[in-house]
């Protein structure tokens, strides 16, 4: 229902405490960060953008943990497939 896109904070706008300049794939837009007030948003942080507002700061540790899980099962799958290929080429039933 709600398009939310990750973007990287490039800079905080000097005279407007609610605004940050955010880059998405190299295009930039001013994003309102009032809803993240007190979270110390800084350049280099990644935030989730929806209708010109930052709704959430992306938690890099959580992202890394989830990605490690995905990579783990990806590797396990590759190993299984390799094992399967070996067994079918070397096994007596091959061909």
């Amino acid at each position: 229902m709600c398009l939310g896109i990750p973007g990287e904070v490039v800079e905080l706008v000097a005279d407007q405490p609610d605004l940050a300049r955010v880059s998405v794939g190299g295009v930039r837009r001013a994003v309102n960060i009032a809803l993240l007030e007190g979270e110390g948003v800084a350049p280099g942080d990644w935030i989730l953008i929806h209708v010109g507002f930052a709704l959430s700061r992306i938690d890099e540790a959580e992202a890394r943990a989830a990605m490690e899980f995905l990579e783990g099962i990806g590797q396990a799958y590759e190993d299984e497939m390799d094992a399967l290929r070996e067994s079918t080429t070397e096994g007596p039933g091959a061909g």
Partner: peptide
């Protein structure tokens, strides 16, 4: 979706 969603949501947004 823990990288984006805190278990308690966004209290500031809820207050607004």
């Amino acid at each position: 979706y823990a990288r984006v969603v805190p278990w308690d949501g966004n209290p500031k947004a809820l207050r607004a």
